[in-house]
């Protein structure tokens, strides 16, 4: 029996086994091609080192130093600017808080402008982490806030409410990130690893304060306008396709300095400091003024407080 079977096989041409093999190979090749298809989108903007770069929290000292060196060189190459990028770490015993006096704010938008310059934002779109809303007196309904006012300020029947990242203690933007590219640091600042971010924009959708911005294009900043004092997690020039957000200027504030928006405020409406220091100005405001937070009912526990004078 076995002899007759083996004799007859050559006459049948391609055997079932061979056909299955060929089909398997074809399917396997197709699957592999499909799997690596995203690589056809690989652009010259993305170097191999950048592609293989680890998450910020997993980088060793040496690796981080290499990454920073590469980023500085890239900035030099692409923007022609000599910059210094540092990895500013949270200081122990510091919890940042920010308060804003709505009675004093006149809506001049100098804070938004200072943010734009300090944080190396895209020039053409005048990106800024701060949006100043012109609000009707007697209402805190953000839906009626107007950010595009063009008349001398302050108008007598309006008040002005700058809105930026609230550095929530329960940040919805962090919860939704599928790759943990954004997290809350020990001093309360919510940061983004711009190189780990995949640009899905879930966080932008999740933020109730409309505080996150997306780099649809590569930011364009003239060489002589680039702020050379840069933080890895803050104002270094962001890559295309990455989310960005206010970091309370951590490259300044983790060095003891005030944020740029506060320094730009001509009226002193902004108060910044360490919530753990009982003698700080921010604590005085929280203990002596009637403060409120935006959208308290959402339970996000913002670190950004608003208050009116009595």
């Amino acid at each position: 029996m076995s002899d007759t079977n083996s004799d007859s096989t050559p006459d049948q041409g391609t055997s079932r086994r061979t056909a299955m093999k060929a089909m398997g190979l074809t399917l396997g090749a197709a699957a592999f091609a499909k799997a690596i298809a995203p690589l056809t989108q690989w652009t010259a903007d993305l170097s191999l080192d950048e592609f293989l770069q680890k998450h910020y929290k997993e980088l060793s000292n040496d690796e981080l130093a290499n990454v920073i060196e590469r980023l500085e060189a890239e900035t030099k190459e692409e923007y022609g600017a000599e910059v210094e990028i540092n990895d500013y770490r949270p200081e122990p015993g510091v919890q940042f808080g920010y308060a804003l006096n709505l009675s004093i704010c006149i809506g001049c938008r100098k804070c938004a402008e200072a943010c734009h310059k300090e944080n190396n934002h895209d020039r053409a779109s005048q990106e800024s982490y701060i949006r100043v809303l012109e609000m009707d007196k007697g209402s805190t309904n953000l839906e009626n806030g107007n950010a595009n006012y063009k008349h001398p300020v302050p108008k007598s029947d309006k008040y002005y409410m700058p809105v930026q990242c609230q550095q929530c203690d329960y940040p919805p933007c962090v919860d939704v990130c599928p790759v943990e590219a954004t997290w809350k640091e020990n001093d309360g600042i919510v940061v983004v690893d711009y190189n780990w971010c995949i640009g899905c924009r879930y966080c932008e959708a999740a933020c109730p304060y409309h505080a996150r911005r997306f780099n649809w294009t590569k930011p364009q900043v003239p060489k002589d306008q680039i702020n050379p004092n840069q933080g890895y997690l803050s104002n270094r020039i962001r890559p295309q396709g990455a989310m960005e957000k206010c970091t309370f200027c951590l490259h300044r504030t983790r060095q003891g300095q005030m944020p740029a928006c506060l320094e730009a405020c001509p009226t002193g409406a902004r108060v910044f400091g360490n919530l753990l220091d009982p003698n700080s100005t921010i604590r005085w405001v929280l203990e002596n003024k009637r403060v409120f937070v935006l959208k308290e009912d959402l339970g996000t526990k913002p670190r950004f407080y608003y208050f009116f004078d009595e």
Partner: peptide
């Protein structure tokens, strides 16, 4: 106010897109 001077001119963004 901050570490650098007033901005002078703005540059266009179109060419980045082309490179992309």
């Amino acid at each position: 106010i901050s570490g650098f001077d007033e901005q002078k001119t703005l540059t266009e963004t179109g060419d980045t897109l082309k490179r992309w």
